[in-house]
């Protein structure tokens, strides 16, 4: 038991590495602020394209979305970060992470938006258009508010996944929370920094996990 506590819950070491991990946490949050809005915007675009009346546009978009949903994000990231330099294109870790995340998260967000838009009845379109609203106005004021409300649990749930996903940026030496913790682990030869990082992730995401459960119940009750 003592060995266990020493290895995993060593408060002395935790205290020492706390500032480093806090810096990592900020970097994680910074990354989230970059990739979540990008993914939400890209997802909306993909959803609209995949619902296009032009078959070719819709099918190309759906194929692209499925391609990026089939490729593990870590594979995308490593391909961009370690593969592209061989072609003479060197991306910074931030650029590689943002690009890989953009491909992955916007595909997932896109599918969620699409389900949301499809869940709004055709009559809503027709009613809005019959009062003279243009297609973009109808989308903005009538369809999207209902679509987002219908799939809010999925949107929040996917956002949690995106935050968790930022941990793979550590693989390309992006100094986010897990990278900092793993550095600290290899220096101190003790797992307490990783436990501390785990606690930070859980503290950050647990409220959102609870929120998703509540939203799911609300939507189910409606």
């Amino acid at each position: 038991m003592e060995v266990f506590l020493h290895q995993f819950l060593n408060f002395e070491i935790m205290q020492k590495v706390f500032p480093l991990l806090l810096k990592g946490l900020w970097t994680t949050l910074y990354l989230c602020v970059l990739v979540i809005p990008l993914g939400l915007a890209g997802g909306l675009l993909l959803a609209l394209l995949s619902l296009s009346r032009r078959r070719a546009v819709a099918w190309t978009t759906i194929a692209l979305v499925d391609l990026f949903r089939a490729a593990p994000p870590l594979v995308l990231l490593i391909l961009l970060y370690s593969g592209l330099p061989f072609a003479g294109i060197k991306l910074t870790p931030t650029a590689a992470v943002c690009l890989a995340f953009f491909c992955n998260t916007s595909s997932y967000y896109g599918e969620i938006y699409r389900a949301g838009i499809e869940s709004v009845g055709r009559g809503q379109w027709e009613a809005a258009r019959s009062t003279g609203l243009s297609a973009p106005q109808t989308l903005t004021y009538v369809i999207l508010p209902q679509a987002v409300r219908n799939v809010l649990p999925d949107l929040v749930s996917n956002t949690i996944e995106v935050v968790k996903l930022t941990s793979i940026a550590s693989v390309v030496s992006f100094p986010e929370l897990l990278y900092s913790a793993d550095m600290a682990r290899s220096v101190t030869l003790n797992s307490s920094p990783v436990v501390l990082a785990a606690v930070m992730y859980i503290l950050l995401l647990w409220p959102l996990v609870r929120l998703v459960s509540r939203l799911e119940r609300q939507v189910a009750a409606r």
Binding site: A127, S130, Q146
Partner: peptide
């Protein structure tokens, strides 16, 4: 369309 009102069988009010 603005000058032609339309009333639908299923009302189609905006629920939000």
């Amino acid at each position: 369309r603005r000058s032609m009102g339309m009333v639908f069988q299923s009302f189609n009010l905006y629920p939000h």
